[in-house]
Design a binder for these strands. Structure first.
Length: 571
DNA sequence: CTCTGCTACGCCCTCTGCTGGTAAAGT
DNA sequence: AACTTTACCAGCAGAGGGCGTAGCAGAG
């Protein structure tokens, strides 16, 4: 491994303007949580950059070692000032980019080793663009920093502004800014313990990146000495296919005190290395446990086992109060709450509603807030839960998934079909008696309509058609008007004719006046009554008219009117 | 590694209630 | 026959119950 001179600089790449090796002593101090931080005698830009440094995490391809700061006496700070240069994404092939492995060799030489293709991860929020990656490439495998005055770094940011860096710094201010070192050779996929043993004698450098002063295009790389802490339970590498993993090594720790492992990606913390390591896998796509039945993969063996149980029907958790059984203990607990204990831990603050599940409370609260997050894509309807939207979509698709097993009528909702079969095809149909009158109605909702229309108080006066009586309830009015039923209140002025209805009197009066206001448009014949004209027209001018005939099933006699037919049936 | 507790999301179901069209009955 | 009334009916949405499944994390 030979150190080489830096090749001709490309304008697209960032050039290290200066390399300073400054003593760490006095610049850092160990704080209570064991994290080494810079003292505040640097410029604001540097301080901001210090925070940003934590955001620059290289993706770890195989395993990683925990890096902890060496003692302040041993630490040195190397400031690499980078200057951004114009960049176009077309100019690079990502695989050409490399990461650095930096080691301090015997004799104090700082060695920078190419660690293979990779990217330093610069994260800000979920959106990642090429311009947000910072990659470091180096021409040869190994360098001595002491021999180099200039390093060539590839900076994949076409315009790193201080303001943008500030945002990163703000979002990642918690980060301790330890950049991981990585090796990518397959043969280095060692067991953590073995690898750890091999590494514990090595010294590592803290490689951090930070923006320059506000408005400057400069980027500083800070390199300080680091030691691998000789502890057995240090975090080990995150698997190779890390997608978003940032440094796992920003755990705050103090010698002798209980260590806390803090995840850079999320807010997770744990005092246990194993939990931390397991958690870090949630930020990867690694799912090594394969279901041989459906080829679905899972992160853990437990998840796989539960999944396989859904294939096999294995339900080890049996309810002691009924014959239900479940795949998981959680299901059993939930079932018991629903069916047996009726424990409802989730209580609504606005009403008395309580639920077994938090999701049910969340759904319920929407009935208070009016929130309707599920918008129909074809109309203005929006629902409070996904099922209602799905059900609503049938009104657009015309889908009727429920079929009556008797008459094969189809329905959009199961409840509609149920009430159909119940009232059309069942003998023991429940009826609903009106509490105010003798009316019996098949459906409760229709009884409600009946009561609303006939038995609710009306502020407006309801006058009798035949006399001066006044009522405030429609049912009472109707009952009263029935008392006038057989009265022939309409008396003819010209003869003794009397009738019950005014319209009958109107027609009768025309026999005296000779008025025939209804004229046939086909033959100009005139009639006193509209229905007489209609019958005439049908009989003489409408070829398509076929008179209805109601045949009695008993005597085969035909009837022209439905009423006569029914009388025959009932006789 | 495993058990366990818990969360979250999804799916399906029931019950409920309102609405509007319609057939049948009444006027 | 025309018109009105009303029970009947299907359609549809609101609310909530119950279970299936996946996933995560604490703890032994």
């Amino acid at each position: 491994m030979a150190a080489t001179e830096i090749s001709v600089l490309s304008e697209q790449f960032t050039k290290i303007k200066e390399l300073e090796l400054m003593p760490e002593k006095g610049l850092k101090e160990e704080e209570e949580d064991g994290v080494y931080r810079e003292k505040d005698h640097r410029s604001p830009g540097e301080l901001e950059a210090e925070c940003t440094a934590g955001a620059l995490q290289d993706s770890v391809l195989e395993e990683e070692l925990e890096l902890v700061p060496a003692s302040s006496e041993e630490s040195e700070k190397h400031i690499l000032t980078l200057q951004t240069a114009p960049f176009t994404s077309e100019a690079f092939e990502l695989q050409d980019l490399s990461l650095l492995s930096i080691q301090q060799q015997e004799g104090g030489q700082v060695m920078v080793q190419q660690a293979g293709p990779g990217l330093l991860w610069l994260e800000e929020g979920p959106q990642q663009s090429l311009q947000q990656y910072l990659a470091i490439s180096i021409q040869e495998e190994l360098y001595s920093l002491q021999e180099m005055e200039v390093l060539q770094l590839h900076l994949l940011e076409d315009n790193v502004l201080a303001s943008e860096e500030s945002k990163l710094a703000a979002s990642l201010a918690e980060s301790a800014g330890l950049t991981k070192l990585q090796e990518r050779q397959e043969k280095e996929q060692l067991l953590p313990e073995r690898r750890l043993a091999e590494r514990t004698k090595e010294q590592f450098l803290h490689l951090g990146a930070m923006p320059g002063d506000k408005g400057s295009d400069e980027i500083f790389l800070k390199i300080s000495n680091l030691n691998v802490e000789e502890q057995e339970d240090r975090p080990i590498a995150v698997p190779a296919n890390v997608e978003k993993a940032k440094s796992a090594e920003n755990q705050r720790q103090t010698k002798g005190a209980k260590r806390t492992f803090c995840c850079d990606v999320c807010v997770f913390t744990s005092s246990r290395m194993s939990s931390f390591h397991r958690h870090m896998k949630t930020h990867t796509s690694e799912k090594p446990h394969l279901c041989h039945l459906c080829l679905k993969t899972f992160r853990t063996a437990t998840l796989l086992r539960n999944h396989v149980n859904t294939h096999t029907g294995t339900r080890p958790y049996k309810c002691s109060d009924c014959n239900m059984a479940f795949v998981t203990s959680g299901e059993l607990v939930r079932h018991r709450r629903y069916k047996h204990t009726h424990e409802k831990p989730f209580k609504c603050s606005m009403c008395k509603y309580a639920s077994v599940e938090a999701s049910k409370l969340k759904r319920h609260v929407r009935s208070h807030t009016g929130e309707r997050p599920f918008q129909c894509c074809q109309c203005s309807y929006a629902s409070r839960d996904t099922y209602k939207l799905k059900r609503h979509m049938r009104t657009h698709s015309g889908e009727k998934p429920y079929e009556c097993h008797v008459c094969h009528a189809r329905f959009t909702q199961s409840g509609t079909m149920k009430i159909h079969t119940q009232q059309k095809h069942n003998e023991n149909v429940p009826k609903h008696q009106c509490p105010h009158c003798a009316t019996i109605i098949a459906r409760k909702s229709d009884l409600r309509v009946h009561i609303r229309n006939l038995h609710t108080y009306s502020a407006a006066e309801l006058k009798c058609r035949y006399c001066s009586a006044v009522f405030h309830e429609r049912y009472a009015l109707i009952q009263h008007q029935k008392t006038h039923k057989n009265e022939k209140r309409f008396k003819c002025e010209h003869c003794s004719y009397a009738c019950k209805q005014a319209r009958h009197m109107t027609a009768h009066v025309r026999t005296h006046t000779g008025e025939k206001p209804f004229t046939c448009l086909s033959c100009n014949k005139c009639f006193r009554q509209k229905q007489l004209l209609k019958v005439h027209f049908r009989k003489y001018h409408d070829a398509s008219f076929i008179p209805a005939v109601y045949k009695c099933p008993k005597c085969d006699k035909g009837f022209s009117r439905w009423v006569l037919y029914k009388l025959s049936i009932s006789a």
